[in-house]
Design a protein around this nucleic acid. Sequence first.
DNA 1: GGTCTGATCTTGGTCAGACCAGTATTATGA
DNA 2: TCATAATACTGGTCTGACCAAGATCAGACC
Lengths: 246, 246
Amino acid sequence: MELKRAAEGEKGFEKVFAFLRERLLAGSLKPGDRLISERELATQLGVSRPIVREALRALTVLGIVEIRDRIGTVVTRPDVSVLNDFFTFALAQQADMLDDVMQARVAIECQAIRLACERANIADFERLQRALAKIGETIDEADAGGMADFEFHRAIVVASHSETLTVLHGSMAGLLTHSHRSRRELVQAFPSMKTYLIDDHRRIFEAVIARDPERADATLRKHFAIGDEYRRRALVGDMDKTSASR
Amino acid sequence: MELKRAAEGEKGFEKVFAFLRERLLAGSLKPGDRLISERELATQLGVSRPIVREALRALTVLGIVEIRDRIGTVVTRPDVSVLNDFFTFALAQQADMLDDVMQARVAIECQAIRLACERANIADFERLQRALAKIGETIDEADAGGMADFEFHRAIVVASHSETLTVLHGSMAGLLTHSHRSRRELVQAFPSMKTYLIDDHRRIFEAVIARDPERADATLRKHFAIGDEYRRRALVGDMDKTSASR
DNA sequence: GGTCTGATCTTGGTCAGACCAGTATTATGA
DNA sequence: TCATAATACTGGTCTGACCAAGATCAGACC
């Protein structure tokens, strides 16, 4: 009846999706709300239950809604995992995108560190310090070291107190950790990397503590650039004698 | 049979989704490929067709796949619209997120402009120049002016030749255009904004032409900051008497 | 032989009704 | 009154069916 009116032009899936979309966007469906049952939704919209399920499933993968078995469907707060999925799929099909995603990561972190300089509180500083310490402790371990590295960078983004930046950064986590790990494997190759990793992160930390956005940004950028340089060298030649390979 | 093996633990929807996900991520399903029919998929995976449809629909809203009526299901190149949807939903439920998304936008554009300084070609320069000219021409029109402004910024991101940055930036397009428009409405309020808009964009353009990443980044950042300041003033005090505002 | 045309197969789009397994609620009995 | 058991939900899934329209191929026509 009146429910149908809201989404008359479309049919089937589109109708249900549009109907729910409207409520979601209008705010009449807020996080925490429980939707009416699938059957009821079906009869009210004049479609079959499988169609309703399609729409609900669609909203589920978008992270808008959560279907709880034998409980009901509830609206959730938008979640990271969507972007995560998206980026994972996107990158799987375009491997050359990895460098590209790295650019996005740099973009986000550099902005985040600027915000962090303004907004970070004691707790953020402490988290950064812990991560920094961890990097020092695990400097010789590939896995733990990569993890520590990642934690440090994540701490920066968290300290920005920007949900969007955090979400975006987190969505690339899977890919980033991979890249971090492979970087970590270079530690054995280039002994100089140890000091690079430790000193660089410390300098970044200090810039944040000093609440100096420009310096923090610049230092972080340099950090990324040096990392790139190491990786490049590792590609061109193995270790030292680098002339033969190509 | 052998297909089932790939996704045994899960059941129903999860099974199908995992099965397809695996193929997608492994690369055995590439953009352009046509999937086998829903019925066949259902029998091969030992589930019913509605369940298969749920999975396909899920992939559809993720922009991974496209269901073509009476044709079949084909793998597509990941598309912006997903992120668009996500951000739209996310922001609808947390209006305070808008400022936050702006931060992400700044992050992306500032990184993009750095890349643009390195990678931009003649065509990119021309596009930027056209957008710049448009800004001058439409300085007194709210709608067209906002569009021109948006085009200029988009041209910057496009000139970065980074798909990821472009996608991310595009995904916020809806929100950004809104913000751009409201900014444009300030033009009438602050006559000084005209010169600000024109000169700022020209300076940005020049920095890109000069291929000076640092200057471009800094100029762009300043541009955003000034825009913020104008908006702030518009909020605090009306129009001219702005001495109180700071 | 080559091309056009129509029957048939296949595809997605949808529906109706049914069963299961647990949850939430309610009615019942102590 | 309270604890327990029956009942009415919920999501999760399956089966089988119908429709409309693109895809295909056989046969008719040029």
